[in-house]
Design a protein around this nucleic acid. Structure first.
Length: 590
DNA sequence: CCGATGATGAATTGGACC
DNA sequence: GGTCCAATTCATCATCGG
């Protein structure tokens, strides 16, 4: 192995300390909310108005001042309050005065997976949440605009920012549209080379116009900027585009031009390293949201057809270096022909497939393969184009391969394993049914693809790694690291399915691991205390890796493709919750 | 109860064409 | 621009037989 210049100084890994940003991002409104005094029993006509705004989280002094200036026009009072509260938190002591994305909420507050997003916030309010009971009735009496504003400030946005966004996006805008806008605004601001505290407003105003002439690489920023240029009022919000070809920051086989490194957003830089995965073809806007919550890191979209004989279009968001990657050896067969040599003999010339489609959780039925056999059998030589098209369409849809004269069949579970880069029989036996094997494999990583991305860790951690593996499934991440020759010191694995946990456990025991495997069955068990305790005992995590459930995102789901807020896919918010906790706790240790 | 099976489209994107 | 066509997709559910 060639000596890489970066190997020598492992201690110099450029982790920027995060110590500075502990609690500075608490918006003024929240700070004010913390010191709400008991409501006065006074009966003067202003008191109701005062209570009204105090209920929103503004301090009493501020409210009185605002009323003094504006009389009883609640609209203008609100404007004044917003301005005043911004002034109260002078940005002078803040390195990033306008940090606004929700994930920057200080970890002392922890994360509530059911909140932190959209209208769930409002539900939290009616439950009391972190607000005192006295506020509840005030909150209920708020106008829709004020409720929205309150939601946003509770999410961690500055009141002025939220107000600005509401102004721009119009009265009908949803919370998501508003957070989108503010995130875009934050990105635009982060472009500014210098930050002058006295011209906050001009900078914000500048958002709608053109900003910054400096040339940069083609990143998400540009897409957000394009979105803004097209006009924020447009219904169609521009989403993150999938690259074509789908090779991410590079694959070993294809020559990938025009990519020369990337610069990560400051907040994305570890420790720990993190690696998040999900389906590339998610409903509109999903990847924008995911990216936003993962520190605005641009997703790396890769199709595993560049690594094996089956397609697998996935998005990966990670903060790993992208230089000097290397593939797992041996290089797996790259065509159907090479991967399944026995099919070659029966493969008709008019079936031009060289790659399989995505390996999914369900397989084609026997009845279907029978229909196909009959329709092809009816002809001596080549069937007519109409039949060819029918057969090919079904073969593509169900990933069928030719296993005999006029006979197609779905792939076997061990062929799934091989194509996905797992050892043979990885999911076999030990009490797992055939149906469950398909399901577990269909939901897994393609090991070669993930390993290629993780390969940069080998030189960074010559003594091994501590890994926090969320939604582990059948252990794709663990297998990838192991096959890279990276020692696994401690793996904390979270996986709901018992059969999957058994698979990983028995793999662990069969591969002579020298480390420790700790598993949990529920992400909810990983609260702040538990994570702190784990970090204490293992000495910190080097990598947080996982792909959260895709069932509510995947195209094959005809029943509940509900997006990121779907029942299972919403567990994404547990990923970021846990990642954020790890990040915060680790930063304290340094 | 468990495991296997078969029926069940829509969303999204890109390209060709007008 | 708009419109059509083609391709693709880490799935869910009721049901049936053991």
């Amino acid at each position: 192995m060639t000596k890489d210049p970066s190997i020598e100084d492992i201690d110099d890994i450029d982790w920027t300390s995060e110590d500075e940003r502990e609690i500075e991002d608490i918006p003024a409104v929240q700070a004010a909310a913390a010191k709400i005094e008991a409501s006065s029993s006074s009966v003067d006509p202003c008191s109701k108005l005062i209570q009204h705004f105090v209920g929103m989280g503004f301090s009493r002094e501020l409210v009185e001042k605002a009323i003094e200036q504006n009389g009883e026009d609640s609209e203008s009072i609100l404007e004044t309050l917003l301005t005043l509260s911004v002034l109260e938190t002078s940005p002078s002591e803040q390195e990033q005065p306008y940090s606004s994305c929700p994930q920057e909420e200080p970890c002392v507050n922890g994360y509530d997976s059911s909140s932190g997003y959209d209208e769930n916030i409002l539900d939290d309010f009616s439950d009391g949440g972190s607000w005192s009971d006295d506020d509840v009735e005030n909150v209920v009496s708020l106008s829709p605009k004020e409720r929205t504003l309150l939601s946003l400030t509770k999410m961690g946005y500055l009141a002025e920012e939220a107000s600005m966004a509401m102004e721009r996006c119009g009265p009908e805008a949803t919370i998501e549209e508003l957070t989108d806008f503010m995130c875009a605004a934050q990105m635009a601001r982060s472009e500014a080379t210098y930050w002058e505290e006295e011209d906050i407003k001009p900078k914000i105003k500048n958002l709608s116009g053109e900003n910054g002439k400096q040339k940069r690489k083609m990143y998400a920023y540009d897409m957000y900027r394009k979105k803004k240029q097209k006009g924020i009022f447009n219904e169609d919000v521009e989403t993150i585009r999938l690259p074509k070809p789908m090779v991410g920051f590079g694959v070993p086989t294809e020559i990938c031009p025009e990519f020369q490194g990337r610069t990560l957003p400051e907040q994305a830089i570890g420790p720990p390293y993190f690696y998040y995965e999900n389906v590339a073809l998610a409903p509109k806007g999903v990847w924008d949201t995911i990216s936003r919550f993962l520190y605005d890191v641009e997703p790396e979209f890769v199709d595993s057809k560049y690594f094996c004989a089956a397609a697998r279009k996935r998005g990966y968001i990670h903060n790993l270096p992208v230089e000097n990657r290397f593939p797992l050896l041996p290089i797996p067969p790259r065509t159907i022909n090479e991967a399944l040599p026995l099919t070659k003999k029966w493969w008709p010339s008019w079936d031009t497939r060289t790659k399989l489609n995505c390996l999914q959780t369900a397989i084609g039925s026997a009845r279907l393969t029978d229909r196909i056999r009959k329709s092809v059998e009816a002809y001596e030589g080549e069937p007519p184009l109409r039949i060819q098209k029918y057969v090919l369409d079904e073969c593509r849809k169900w990933n069928l391969v030719w296993v005999g004269r006029n006979k197609v069949a779905p792939l076997e579970p061990d062929e799934f394993e091989m194509l996905l880069g797992f050892p043979k029989n990885h999911t076999r036996g030990g009490g797992i049914s055939r149906t469950d094997r398909y399901k577990s494999l269909g939901n897994s990583f393609q090991v070669d693809t993930v390993a290629y991305h993780l390969s940069v860790l080998k030189d960074l951690f010559p003594n091994g790694m501590n890994v926090l593996s969320l939604f582990s499934g059948i252990g794709g991440a663990e297998v990838a690291l192991h096959r890279l020759g990276i020692r696994l010191k401690t793996v904390v694995s979270v996986e709901k399915s018992e059969v999957n946990r058994n698979i990983v456990r028995s793999w662990w025991e069969q591969t002579n691991q020298t480390g420790t495997l700790i598993d949990f069955d529920d992400v909810q068990q990983l609260n702040g205390d538990r994570i702190e305790q784990l970090i204490d005992s293992v000495g910190g995590f080097d990598l947080v890796i996982g792909g959260s459930p895709c069932n509510n995102l995947a195209g094959s789901n005809r029943v509940s493709r509900d997006g990121l807020e779907g029942k299972e896919s919403a567990l994404f918010y547990d990923y970021i919750r846990i990642l954020d906790l790890v990040k915060c706790i680790m930063s304290r240790y340094r």
